[in-house]
Structures are given as C-alpha cells and as structure tokens.
Design a protein around this nucleic acid. Structure first.
Ligand code: FES
Ligand code: FES
Lengths: 133, 133
DNA sequence: GTTATTCCTATCGGAATGCTAGGAATATAG
DNA sequence: CTATATTCCTAGCATTCCGATAGGAATAAC
C-alpha cells in the first residue's frame, strides 16, 4: 500500500544525481544511464522538474540540467508535489465536499491527520538530508 | 498522490458502522445501504476483515457481522494492513533487495523514514479514536 | 423447506501507469 | 553554414490495477 510511482522515485534519484555533481550540468542521457532509468521516460520527468522551477536547463550541444537551488534549499515536499501533485489520501478532503455518510463523517478527521503527517515528513526533509545518508 | 483505495475507505466506514451499533450484529446489505457502498463489493471487503480476525460473522438468517474486539483495541494499522497489505512506499525496502544505483542507494533511508512515519500514525490511532470525532 | 444471509470464484470495463516513438526547436563547434 | 548534441513537445501503446458486478454454493434460523 501507498506505493510511490516510479515517476517520483526516478525524479528523486535524478535530483540526487544532480546534487552529487553540482556545478557542472548533467545531460538527461547521462543521468538515465547512471541511474538505470529509461532515457525517454526520464526526459519527461526532468521536464516536470524544470517547469516547477526545481532544475534549470540549457539546450543544444553542451546543454543539460542542474539544480536551480542548493540542495538544502529544496524541500522534498516541493519535489513530490511537482511530480505527482498534492498529497490527498481521500478525495473528500477538499473544502465543502462531504461524503453522504448520514451521521456525519467520522473518518474525515482521520484522513486529514494522515495527510498532515505525510506532508510534515516531506516538508521536514530537504534534498541535502536525502543525500547525506 | 497517496490516494487511499476505496477498498480501505469502505472497510473503515464499515468498521465505524459496526462500532456505532455495537452488541447487535449488522448485515452486509444494511451497512452497504447506510454507507452508500456497492453491496456486492462490500461483501468481499467484510470477508477480508473477517479473515484478518477483526470482525466476526454468523451465517444464515439473522446472521451478520460484529466487531471481534472493542473499538479501543483495534489499531488502525491492523485495519489498513488487513485491507491493502503492508505499507511499502517503494519495493526496494525489502531486506537484501537493493537498487542498482552505483554509488550506493541514498534515497533508501528517505523512503524508509516515510514508511515509519505512516506506520506510526496508523499504529497510534484506534477505531475508537476514529469514531470520537 | 423456505428464507435470509455469508461465502466463494470468476469476470469485466475503465482508468492509470510506465514506457516508447518521432521529430521540432535550439545551441555549440568547426 | 553545416553537422551535431541536446532539450522539448506530442502522441500513442501495453499492461496492470481498481472498482464493481454476477451467479451461485454453503449454512443457519424459523
Ligand atoms: S468526508 Fe471523506 S469519508 Fe466522509
Ligand atoms: S534501494 Fe530503493 S531507490 Fe535504491
């Protein structure tokens, strides 16, 4: 249960790779090979990270990707939200949407607490924490 | 992200229903109607909860389901594991399985910490906590 | 033996996931 | 200016998973 999509796992591995080779920029193909990730698939993932402002890119020969900020300034919550959207255990956590449970929705608070717990974990970790064993 | 399958949501709603009507036993159809859950689908879910020893059942006329223990003795971790299996964010958390990341696997600890965080949340809540607002 | 119920197994449509393909845009090198 | 290296964009596809449904067998009460 709660399995993390490969998209997110790969995205994080890619960021780890970039963090380890800071300064110089790495190409998508290089990262894919080093991390055993399907090259074309990774291209799309890096695109997402770029659109979210987590990495910078340069096109053309000698192009590639590098981190937009230092690892300690990249919160993992940002990363997972960039890759898979907000953590939302159950759909009914949106405002004003309520299930039709007649006696009022008891599980709601339970799920809401779960979301907070997960969000806090992700928010408390930075990319630097991830690469430092 | 991290959306909880309806299977688990329904299972918990069913347990809540049973907890609210303790002592007397409720039929699957009755719970399904009260909770707006597909009746046949719920049958299977209750079967799982029964096989995990969380609810007791009686067959035949006047049969039905009831909690196997009091709500305060039912940890939510047991419930979610009964319904969806162990919380396992990434497959590589199993012992001795290691990804082929060449410089050693840095994200591993990150995922492991996530699993612990989620498990602790579920383990800290009982069914009684869920029904008490 | 009739009725109410749990229990078992099989199946199915639709959505999501993980991945692949092809090529356009863009930058560098020579 | 051309060849090359790279990001970027869009479409499509195979497989798996999810949520749900169907039919009926077993069992217990009355
Ligand atoms: S509002 Fe989510 S189960 Fe009720
Ligand atoms: S052991 Fe899981 S990503 Fe490496």
């Amino acid at each position: 249960m709660f399995s993390v999509p490969t998209r997110t796992q790969y995205g994080i591995r890619a960021l780890v790779h970039l963090a380890m080779s800071e300064a110089r920029s790495s190409t998508s193909a290089e990262i894919a090979k080093a991390q055993s990730i399907s090259p074309k698939y990774l291209e799309g993932i890096l695109g997402q990270l770029k659109n979210s402002g987590l990495v910078l890119s340069e096109r053309g020969a000698h192009g590639g990707y590098r981190l937009a900020r230092e690892p300690e300034a990249i919160r993992m919550l940002e990363v997972v939200e960039a890759l898979e959207g907000e953590v939302k255990p159950v759909g009914c956590l949106e405002d004003s949407v309520h299930c039709d449970f007649d006696v009022g929705c008891l599980p709601r608070r339970f799920w809401s607490g779960l979301k907070e717990t997960i969000d806090e974990y992700f928010a408390s970790k930075t990319l630097k924490d991830v690469i430092e064993t």
